[in-house]
């Protein structure tokens, strides 16, 4: 039989980092292969928010008066971009839980590769997925009459804020996926994604809600990102007198950083504790 040996891994930190990046790219490519082999799943994931836009546009477009006039889509799209970032959480959770329950994670852990490569590869694949999803949503919005009114720099800043939120949710997704242990036990979490999305200013003005509910909705991290992107795209928003409504722009940066500060160490700790 032929014998194959692995090249001796470098001992220097630099060469280790190099291998970690190479390994991460291999893991990312695995997801890209998934897209090619099972295009249905990923296309449904991308089409789903478009469907929601059409549904809500049709249902509420006539009933909800948009602040400052203008079409409902002008108002709805930035919020739906934000929701699209939230839906990405499900992709991450499911992928992580599936690998953990099928033993793929264990195989990675039994190989002489760095643990950070597994996580980094997952992050890159999911970010790519969300970038494509967001592009599709922007295209759909343009077709439906949504426009950005600020300059390209402001529009890019809005996209940056959206992806920052997505990156923060990655770590929450990894943690939930590891805790769940299997894709079957994720159903309840997936249902909870909806109340989290609705309890925000994405669809309805928090000022019209009962005070306590309105406060929760206003402080929802999604609301900060939705308000900030509406402002940057030059689309109509709810405004509001509360501190949180006045400071949507800085909070759209602070919230994702805070979420990352909480969930990144927790998910790394959980990954390490797979061995205890």
């Amino acid at each position: 039989m032929s014998t194959t040996t692995s090249p001796l891994p470098g001992r220097s930190p630099l060469s280790r980092a190099g291998w970690a990046l190479t390994d991460a790219w291999t893991i990312t490519r695995r997801d890209l292969n998934h897209w090619a082999l099972r295009p249905g799943a990923v296309i449904v994931g991308w089409a789903f928010p478009v469907m929601i836009v059409l549904m809500f546009g049709g249902l509420f477009g006539g009933a909800i008066s948009v602040p400052g006039g203008g079409g409902y889509f002008e108002f709805l799209m930035p919020g739906m971009f934000t929701m699209t970032m939230l839906f990405g959480l499900e992709t991450t959770m499911t992928a992580v839980a599936t690998d953990a329950s099928r033993g793929v994670t264990d195989r990675f852990r039994s190989m002489p590769m760095s643990a950070s490569a597994v996580v980094l590869g997952r992050c890159a694949a999911d970010m790519l997925n969300s970038i494509v999803g967001l592009s599709i949503m922007i295209g759909a919005g343009l077709l439906l009459g949504w426009r950005w009114h600020g300059g390209p720099a402001a529009a890019l800043a809005a996209v940056g804020l959206l992806l920052l939120l997505r990156a923060a949710l990655l770590w929450a997704g990894i943690l939930i996926g590891l805790v769940a242990g299997g894709p079957e036990s994720l159903a309840s979490v997936q249902i909870l994604v909806w109340p989290v999305g609705f309890l925000s200013n994405v669809f309805v003005d928090p000022a019209t809600m009962p005070a306590w509910l309105g406060a929760i909705a206003a402080w929802n991290p999604l609301s900060a990102t939705a308000s900030a992107t509406r402002e940057l795209f030059g689309n109509p928003g709810w405004g509001g007198e509360s501190w949180i409504a006045q400071n949507a722009m800085p909070m759209a940066v602070v919230w994702p950083l805070l979420l990352t500060a909480i969930f990144l160490p927790l998910s790394v700790r959980r990954f390490r504790r797979l061995g205890s």
Partner: peptide, 20 residues
Amino acid sequence: AVDEILTGRQNLVMFGRLNH
């Protein structure tokens, strides 16, 4: 512990790459 979606060959190539 193999990837269900990938082909058998893609699995072997991926783990080969991860073995550097």
